[in-house]
Every structure is written in C-alpha cells, then in structure tokens.
C-alpha cells in the first residue's frame, strides 16, 4: 500500500459517500444516471467474488464489502425508494453498447481463461466506461448540480491516483498489471473534459454548465 493507492481508495470512498448523502439529504436522485449506478453495481459484484475465495487484508475486505453494499444500496434508492425523483427521460444511454463489447473483450484479452479471471477482467473493462451514461446525461441536460460535480470529480480522481500508484509499483515493486493499467488510463481520459469544466467553473463557485 502506497500513498497514491490509499488516496485513490479514499477518493473512491468519498465519491460514493457524497452520492449517498446527496440522495439521502435531498430525498432525490435527480441528475444521477441510474444506468451508470447499475453498471457500477455489476462492476463490484463481478470483481469482488474473490471475497469468498481469497483473503488479502482486513482493509481490503472492509472496502470491498462497503463498495458492494453501497453500490447495491444506491441502485435500491434510485429504482425503488426515490424512484419518483429519478430523471429517466434524460438517462437514455444504451448500456448494452458498453456491456456487450466489454464482455467480449474480457473473453479475448485476459490473464487466464477461467471464470473468476474473466469476471475480474470484465469488471475492469466495464468500470472504465461505466461513467459514460452519467456523462451523457450531464451533456444532455447541459448542467449538473454542484454536489453531482463533486461526486464526479472524486470518482474521476480515484482512477487518476491509481495511475500514480501503478507507476510507483512498477518502479519500486516491479509489479504491473497491463489490463488494469490500460483500462485505468482509458477511464481517466474519459473524465478529462469534465475535470477541465470542474476546475474552471465549479471551483470558482459557478454551476457546471456546458457551453451552448
């Protein structure tokens, strides 16, 4: 565990907590893509099956349980408890365009052709693009609430910090995982446009509004 990975994990944790607080306090999931949240739940379920087969550390187990619980909880809040506030008219990204290619790619490009390994690989590929329905929704409505922007910033920073972690691990531990690295870079690149808007607008106290 190095400082970049810890910072990345904490950023990921912060993103999820920000989202849950937003939904819970405002009693609304307006502006949030339920489709992205379903994809994240699939990501965690397929990646953390090793909870039952491998013990890495108490930290690792606790984080996995939290990510699983919170992602399934978010889907529950959006599709059941606060269903009336879910803005489904603007959440129209076709997720099969993400699910099918990532599923196929994980069957072809993986470390080992085994069920657990393919599901892990699928979760890595799917995570890299799972935010697209949310970004699509923001671009469709042309704006995002500040709290949604903070959520997206924390979520994007997480994989960016992981890239620093991978550079560190490559130099100091001789460890690298090419699948995670390439997918993580793709994932971070998808946020670049948003990062620019966040820094130039939201941090200056303005609402995130896309140029018309």
């Amino acid at each position: 565990m190095n400082i970049f990975r810890l910072a990345g994990d904490l950023s990921h944790l912060a993103a999820i907590i920000i989202l849950l607080i937003k939904i819970w306090k405002t009693r609304s999931c307006a502006g949030i893509s339920g489709r992205s949240q379903v994809l994240f739940a699939i990501v965690f379920i397929t990646r953390y099956l090793d909870l039952f087969t491998n013990f890495i550390s108490a930290y690792n187990t606790a984080m996995k349980v939290f990510f699983l619980g919170s992602s399934i909880g978010t889907v529950y809040l959006m599709y059941l408890k606060f269903k009336a506030t879910y803005d489904h008219n603007h959440d129209t990204f076709r997720i099969e365009f993400l699910l099918l290619p990532t599923a196929l790619l994980s069957l072809v490009l993986n470390h080992e052709f085994s069920v657990m390994e393919i599901l892990w690989t699928f979760s890595i590929y799917l995570e890299s693009v799972a935010i697209l329905p949310q970004l699509f929704m923001v671009s469709k409505t042309g704006e995002a609430e500040s709290i949604t922007s903070h959520y997206l910033f924390a979520l994007g920073s997480y994989r960016g910090l992981y890239i620093l972690n991978w550079i560190y691990r490559y130099y100091f531990e001789g460890f690298y995982d090419i699948i995670a690295i390439v997918a993580g870079c793709v994932q971070t690149i998808l946020y670049c446009d948003f990062f620019y808007l966040y820094i130039t607008k939201v941090l200056k106290g303005k609402k995130l509004q896309l140029p018309a």
Binding site: H12, D50, N54, I56, N60, M63, H111, E117, Y162, A180
Partner: peptide, 10 residues
C-alpha cells in the same frame, strides 16, 4: 507468474 497472484487492488 502474474496470473497465479490474487488481485490485491480494489
């Protein structure tokens, strides 16, 4: 062999 190692990242 990296495929034998567990994925230790989240």
């Amino acid at each position: 062999d990296e495929t034998e190692e567990a994925h230790d990242e989240l």
